[in-house]
Design a protein around this nucleic acid. Structure first.
Lengths: 195, 195
DNA sequence: ATATAATCGGACCCGTGGTCCGTTTTCGAC
DNA sequence: GTCGAAAACGGACCACGGGTCCGATTATAT
């Protein structure tokens, strides 16, 4: 028999909070004015419960982000081409960056909230480490490409949530145009050896 | 004759605040725990004065940033090669990005504080618009480079303050190596036509 | 049914950006 | 030099959001 599973009300409340937060961050434009108290209220739960379940605001954001990221992780780690393994490096790099971009487009407020400094730099987040490690590994398989580590950082920087928000939101650049431009940029980066 | 110059004490205090803030942001590691009250105290001034002079925290940051940026603006607008006008596009793009990187390296805490979301996205800041417009203009002179606007954004994204901080600070990458890697990346971006 | 331990939840605390207004300083006019 | 108005000063004060605490509540084992 298991030591102690979580209590029913605990898991129920955790779910409720995740759902409520998900909804709130999707609806509200400005992620920074979704307050913890708002989330608690929307979930029909006290602030204490909220903080016990997720530690702090960053923890809640991380939990939400990770949850939405699951399909992408699976697609990348064991899915079909072009995102999955066993794809030629060039094609996979393009697919990865496109996936990252699409993910941020589809989760704008959440990505924005999470990348916000104040939690600590986004570069310490584990999901960033994962993406960076993956991209770096694929880049390493490409001949004639020095500094795959930096290149991975630089390419990912082109998909920063606030840049995406600026281009897609403020400037109204359509999704497809943005994807095309990123693809073109990426292609240029990986298509030639310098010097 | 001009109606009313600023009063002596006003300009004196403004200077004092700028100097104090400059010192504080340079010394303290974490820009976010330099508080407005700290700045006021260090300048020997009340908070009221501070806020009347700069509006809000972002205003103070902006003023400091602009002040430190002056030499670069001059070097770019009327200085000698390779930064100044009249330089071949390829070389000037490299020089511009290197200058941006060096600037952020030399003003890490300040750049970090200013790029912090919470003030509003860094992409609305006028200094960003200036850098972007300039870089874009130079890129437009290069044949075979589609989408200079996006390219400019993407290249500048590689010099984001928090990325620089991560690489130079946490990972301890030496200045020269970082500059070399950015130069290599930039070269790759501008050296080939895709497709 | 009862004991026990975990969870609940909202009152509370604290730090920070930002405001307010009585007091002080500057500066032109005489 | 003196005087009065207008501007600036500065620190007490406010609002608000993240995070904590602890008495009340509720799930679970026996």
């Amino acid at each position: 028999m298991p030591e102690h599973r979580s209590r029913r009300d605990a898991v129920r409340n955790r779910e409720a909070v995740l759902a409520a937060a998900d909804a709130l961050f999707s609806r509200r434009e400005r992620p920074e004015d979704v307050t913890m108290a708002d989330v608690a209220a929307a979930a029909g739960v006290g602030k204490g419960t909220l903080f016990r379940a997720f530690g702090d605001r960053a923890g809640l954001l991380r939990a939400l982000y990770e949850a939405r990221l699951v399909p992408f992780r699976e697609a990348v780690e064991s899915g079909p081409r072009p995102l999955g393994p066993g794809t030629a490096p060039r094609e996979r790099v393009l697919a990865l960056l496109d996936a990252v971009l699409c993910f941020k487009l589809d989760n704008r407020p959440l990505a924005l909230a999470l990348e916000e400094n104040g939690n600590g730099s986004p570069y310490r987040a584990e999901h960033y480490a994962w993406w960076h490690g993956l991209l770096r590994a694929v880049l390493e398989e490409m001949p004639g490409l020095a500094e795959p580590g930096f290149t991975a950082h630089a390419l990912l920087a082109a998909t920063r949530a606030d840049l995406v928000e600026h281009l897609a939101g403020q400037e109204g650049l359509p999704r497809e145009r943005l994807r095309a431009q990123l693809a073109e940029f990426t292609t240029r980066v990986i298509s030639s050896a310098p010097r």
